[in-house]
Each structure stands twice: as C-alpha cells, then as structure tokens.
C-alpha cells in the first residue's frame, strides 16, 4: 500500500475583522491509495476548510494556508502553481460538494458542464466529449442519458443532481475523490443510493475517497479509516473498527455515546457532551475539549497536547484529562 495524500502540520488561517483566526490549526493525516478516509466533526471544526485547502479553493483573499505540507503523489500542493494546479484539480482530484444546486451552473445544460471538463482536461474533441458525457451519465445511473444530457440542473431532483456532480467529479478518473457532505441534503433512501454509487465507482476506478461528513452512521458503513476533528485540530485518527470499538479521546467517546440508536431504550436520557464549542476567536492554545467542558487547569489550557501514535495507525491527542486509558 502506498500513500496518496499526506498532510503534515497544515495550518489554514482567515483574515477577519477580529484578526487572523486559525480554522485549521496544525493537522496531520494521510490517505492511502484506493482507501476511504472519513473526516468527521461538528460544524465549524474545520472539515471543509481542510478539503478546500487541499484543492486550493479557499475563499480569497481572506483564506491562506500558512504552514504545513499537502503532499499528493510526491508533490507539495502548497508549492504547485498555475497551470499544474488546475491540471490536478478536476483531473487528478475530483470534488463533490454538499449542495449540488449551488455547485452546478444553473444557466448551462448539464451536458455542457460535463463536456467542458473533458475538453479541458482530456483534450477531447467536442464530439468525443459528448459521447463520453453520455457514457458517464449512464455510469452514474441516470436514466435516458441521451435526453437528460440537455436538461438544466433545475429540471432534476436532488438525487439526480448529485449524480451529475459525481459524473463531473469522476469524468477524468481521478486518483482522489473529495466528497464534502455528499448526502447531507438528501433523504435516507437517496443517500443510500448515492453512497452505493460512490462505493461502486471507487471499486471500478481504484480511487481513494476523502469523505467529509458529520454522520457517524455514514462513516461506519463507508470508511476504512476515520479522522475526528474538533475545533480545528485532529483529536483522534484510527481504523474505523478500532475507533468505534475503542475510542481513546473523550470527545470521540462523547460523540459516539450521544447518537440515538435504534436499539437503545426509548425515551431514555441520552448521553450528552456538556458545553458547546468555543467561538474560533476564543480558542485556547491548549486542549480545546478541556476548554469546552470548562476544566480550570491552566496548564492544560495553555499547552497543546501531544499527538501520538498509541497503536498501529491509531493517533490521539494525549491531553492528560481527555486521553482515555
């Protein structure tokens, strides 16, 4: 197995009215070829900013990658510029966004949007590109693709739009697919269809997937490895079974315990994580989960906990209070 994407000490900052804020604060993880890695965490924890840093789609001019490396197939994406970056984005890395209606251009037919990427990246002729576009729509399970190719996005249902997004993301057979909450806007039955589709395309193309979601159910059923983010940092990272069976960070454990489950007793009190995420300007430099549950130990709040590998592939932030033995 070899590493496809290796992120080391990534720091992404935004220039705001109240000064620079670090939305992603020194995170490291990697994605192996052909594997699915889930990036999970609550809103505002930096999941999407991480993804946008990888493909350099941060909002400009406020967003910047300040430190760290994003190694993709041996190149540091932070140092790649211009034409080469555009070749990687869309060509070697495909992206599916959460809200397909916002990501697709509403005034162009979906065929045109598919053909555009094929002509640009694969240097195909219009005719060949159109043919390939029909094949792609067919591959992602859109009925009557020859007719659908001249539809506008608003003429399609949410699930169908997400299929079009997937077709565009996979048009150039990328090595890595970044899926940012690909099913959050969809119903459960359609969610199941889309996840199934991503899995089957992954098997066919042998690509790796970075799946960003807040749904632990989606993580459990689709990922090989999980990266848990909290307040801009990775607090725990482990193979999926290991993480669900033996969470070692108090936040991961709290998260797993607070989901209602079908088999749990009805109307019983659910476990909760006390407090709420601090706002980004107020983040302490030390353990941010200690900050949330209002521990007063000033050393813990000042000193950033070590991020250590405690078992093969199992990394945890080892804050003396939050690290579970």
């Amino acid at each position: 197995m070899s590493t496809l994407l290796d992120i080391k000490g990534l720091v992404t900052s935004f220039d705001t009215d109240s000064g620079w804020v670090r939305a992603v604060d020194g995170i490291s993880f990697s994605v192996e070829k052909g594997k699915t890695v889930g990036l999970v965490g609550e809103s505002g924890c930096g999941k999407t900013v991480t993804a946008m840093s990888i493909i350099d789609l941060l909002p400009k001019p406020s967003g910047h990658v300040l430190e760290g490396e994003i190694n993709f197939k041996g190149r540091d994406l932070c140092k790649v510029t211009g034409a080469e970056k555009r070749k990687i984005r869309g060509g070697e890395i495909g992206v599916i966004f959460q809200e397909p209606m916002a990501a697709l251009n509403p005034v162009h037919r979906i065929g045109k949007q598919l053909v555009e990427i094929l002509k640009l990246h694969e240097k195909m002729s219009s005719r060949a590109a159109l043919q390939k576009a029909v094949q792609l729509l067919d591959a992602v399970g859109i009925p009557a693709p020859e007719e659908r190719i001249s539809s506008y996005p608003h003429e399609l249902s949410g699930g169908m739009r997400q299929r079009v997004m997937i077709a565009i993301a996979l048009a150039c057979e990328p090595d890595l697919l970044i899926a940012d909450e690909p099913t959050t806007a969809l119903d459960v039955t359609v969610q199941a269809q889309i996840l199934e589709l991503i899995q089957s395309m992954q098997a066919k193309l042998g690509m790796a997937v970075l799946m960003i979601t807040h749904d632990l159910g989606v993580i459990a059923q689709n990922c090989d490895e999980v990266v848990v983010m909290y307040a801009g940092r990775v607090v725990e990272r482990a193979p999926v079974r290991e993480l669900f069976a033996h969470p070692r960070h108090a936040y991961t454990k709290g998260l797993l315990n607070s989901i209602p489950r079908i088999e749990s007793e009805r109307k019983s009190e659910l476990n909760t994580i006390p407090g709420q995420v601090a706002s980004i300007q107020d983040f302490v430099s030390g353990c941010r989960f200690c900050q949330r549950i209002d521990r007063k130990n000033s050393v813990l709040l000042r000193q950033r906990p070590d991020y250590r590998e405690i078992a093969l592939g199992h990394w945890v932030e080892t804050c003396p209070e939050c690290f579970l033995a």
């Binding site: 459960v188 039955t189 749904d215 459990a220 059923q221 079974r241 669900f244 989901i259 489950r261």
Partner: peptide, 10 residues
Amino acid sequence: SAIPVPDPTA
C-alpha cells in the same frame, strides 16, 4: 434498511 447504522461491524 436505508439508515446508516453507526456500527462498522454491522
């Protein structure tokens, strides 16, 4: 059957 169950062994 479409609910994703938060258990990787299921």
